[in-house]
Design a protein around this nucleic acid. Structure first.
Lengths: 196, 196
DNA sequence: TCCAAGCTTGACACCGTGTCAAGTTGACAT
DNA sequence: ATGTCAACTTGACACGGTGTCAAGCTTGGA
């Protein structure tokens, strides 16, 4: 990793990201990425022996560029349970479109490639933990709805905030990003927060 | 269609369905289906020239066997808006696991195959219409939440009841089917029905 | 001057889909 | 018996994408 010259590697990662983001419709092939990075297909395999590895590296690269960790962590600063829930949904919800292209490719590979599946799952783990933290904050404040015992509330929130749901509402139904975030906040509050 | 002997065709469809349902982990290949049906791979292509066609035919076959239309239609019998919402969620929610195997394969092909995408979308159209009908019933009763103008309520319900969400909650989080249906009913009521 | 890293080109194996040609089998009609 | 037709068989192959391998070229540093 650290022994490698950053130049070419970064160029590859940037190209891959750009191609995946623009979502040309068809799948993005290794040869496409190589061409975009200005190297041969075989040289690309010198850097990333497997397609899945390249995809994983690209997500990490995007994460770093987009300051994902920092943005998700910041949402934990809110003191009140409900405010924290809102802040988390806002942070993650607005992050989805920025990583969607890469995530989409990783999700598509999940079905076949074990490595890709593992990568995506561990990636989602961060989100899962964010959901968990938000639910715990609600619990601490005594405002968590009694409808969802155990981990159910976390499961539900996690599912509600899935990339697939964002995809459906924003890409297919044509919602704006703002609409999406507001609706998710409202829905989460209605289902997870004990009603007075 | 009608000119074809039903025997082999049905055997193929049954085999495909069974293989897809059992979800062996890996993808189900044409050769797997042919072997299961007791014919050669090439003969399978005689019946279904494209993989997507076979998948589409299999879904229709499953639909027919499972009486999908009848079950979804029955949910419209409920008079009250809220009861109809409940009935629809119950009908569709309990139908998901029965068609999941085939749907999964079709969803996986969506990314690459236009025919598969179209088939899946037109398939989901029936669900979408069910959601629409349920929302209209709420509207007629004057109990639809004012939070969701226009088609938003339908979009939200449709997304909530997506196969992916079922997959996540039941297959990944380990919810029981009953838990899932109850939670969806509750969530739908909390978000779509005007709170007193 | 030599070496090594990083790249190049070209060839190829593997796998799954889809196609094609030629031969086999069995039912039915004359 | 003979013909014929449909459904099926085997075997071979094209295509596209991933991943591998070998051999040669270029460039910078000791």
């Amino acid at each position: 990793m650290s022994s490698e010259k950053p130049d070419t590697r970064t160029r590859i990662l940037d190209s891959a990201w750009k191609l995946l983001e623009s979502g040309t419709g068809g799948e993005v092939r290794m040869s496409d990425i190589a061409r975009a990075a200005g190297i041969s297909r075989q040289a690309l395999y010198l850097h990333f022996p497997k397609r899945a590895e390249l995809l994983v590296a690209t997500t990490l690269h995007v994460d770093a560029v987009k300051n994902v960790d920092a943005r998700l962590a910041a949402s934990r600063a809110a003191t009140g349970g409900v405010e924290r829930l809102d802040a988390f949904i806002e942070a993650w919800g607005n992050y989805i479109p920025e990583i969607y292209g890469v995530g989409r490719a990783l999700m598509a590979m999940q079905e076949t490639d074990a490595e890709a599946r593992h990568a995506w799952e561990s990636r989602m783990q961060a989100v899962r933990e964010g959901c968990e933290a938000a639910v715990r904050a609600l619990e601490r404040d005594g405002v968590l709805s009694p409808d969802h015992p155990g981990e159910r509330a976390t499961d539900l929130l996690w599912t509600l905030l899935s990339v697939r749901n964002w995809e459906q509402l924003v890409r297919q139904c044509g919602w704006t990003q703002k609409d999406y975030v507001e609706a998710m906040k409202r829905t989460a509050r209605q289902t997870l927060v004990r009603q007075a």
